[in-house]
Design a protein around this nucleic acid. Structure first.
Lengths: 218, 218
DNA sequence: CCTACTTCAGTGGTCTGACCACACATATCC
DNA sequence: GGATATGTGTGGTCAGACCACTGAAGTAGG
């Protein structure tokens, strides 16, 4: 034990900022995750240890952790610990949408944006995908009954762009939260769309996408 | 009662067991806001009052409030109170991406994504913009020395889609953070690009954009 | 009467310490 | 060896104590 000196201890290491402690802790956590290269599933230090290491009260640490939990970035299991979470939309979008999206314009924006992001993902997938993967995808379409979002999730993955994937994922959650769930189209339309990827022709892909979505070809 | 509830994993039938207090408080708050028709700027009850009314500890109330604050849904002012925030925007992407975006490939993804988002914005702008605004933009190009990002910020605004605007804005921030600042192109190229908007021809816009960015026309 | 100042109640911000419920590893017992 | 107790560590929650700050009520001075 250390001698209990009562030196003037500043909360956390931060030069006289107005930033709240819990925000600072969020920042530190992000840094920690980055520096230690923590991946989804990894464990982060316990609340008590963080409280000590960051020189803050446990309640402040908890405020930060709870916020991150609600964001879906971490996961806590009583008796075990706190873990980095594999990102998923979780309740967050649900939460936000019930709070936010009464606005009709916002709703329209979601629809519009999702559609365009999907096309972007299709373009990227067309550039990057191997013929072999296209074949596999076609077989998958044939052999499974799937939701529309499963298909585009696959496309977003094939696009091999983490940012686009995240963006699409979020938009899709919004979509669902708005009760705009897309009903699956005909398998034939999916097949045609996938075929168009092989051609790597942007205009054709766009046309097939619009066909699938039954949009006008404006 | 509440037709909004979609219910995923919390059968409200037995609210005791598996629900953390702070999550329940978030739920109650949402309900309260909905029932009392609270709008941005309105004040919500103090932490102590909530703690009493909801029969929970103040720290639990705070965990809920801090989470909502980090989400940008509420705003707290010491000595004054807690207020509903004007959150028409979607800072979701912002929050998540500041946390995510760490790996090496991320840099390449940013470049790729920004480029495609810009094209999307151009398409949208082309659809929505008035001839008069195009003229004004052309004059502006002529009469000002501007940064590339100023130009595309304008385009993103003209696209009239808040989501795209946010996404572009964030990507641009990352771009700068990664020292990838785009040097302004020739005014002539901007002019040609803007001209292409008037035609509303996607292929032409894309071509002009690639010319501006000196990308191959693959 | 009207300013200018003081006071005070209310609010968020933070910390501490105390329990509880639970998970897991260890030691113990049969 | 396998089943069972036990111990330690973890998150979950609460209560209470200060602090810093705001705004309004109250007060003193002009």
């Amino acid at each position: 034990m250390q001698p209990l000196e009562k030196v003037s201890e500043r909360p956390v290491s931060q030069p006289e900022k107005n930033t709240k402690v819990y925000v600072e802790i969020v920042r530190q956590l992000r840094e920690m995750i980055y520096k230690d290269e923590l991946k989804p599933g990894d464990k982060i230090p316990s609340e008590r240890e963080l409280s000590e290491r960051l020189n803050a009260g446990r309640s402040s640490v908890r405020e930060a952790l709870r916020a991150l939990e609600l964001l879906g970035l971490i996961e806590t299991r009583r008796g075990e610990g706190t873990f980095i979470r594999d990102f998923r939309g979780n309740q967050l979008v649900q939460l936000l949408s019930t709070f936010i999206l009464q606005d009709d314009k916002a709703k329209q924006d979601v629809i519009e944006t999702k559609s365009m992001i999907e096309v972007d993902c299709l373009y990227l997938a067309a550039e990057k995908v191997q013929q072999e993967e296209i074949e596999r995808l076609k077989v998958w379409i044939d052999e499974h009954n799937f939701e529309d979002e499963e298909f585009f999730k696959t496309i977003a993955e094939l696009a091999d762009n983490h940012l686009f994937y995240r963006i699409w994922y979020i938009l899709n959650d919004y979509y669902n939260a708005l009760n705009l769930k897309v009903s699956p189209s005909e398998k034939e339309d999916y097949q045609k769309l996938v075929d168009s990827l092989a051609t790597k022709r942007g205009d054709l892909i766009l046309e097939r996408y619009r066909m699938l979505r039954k949009m006008s070809t404006s």
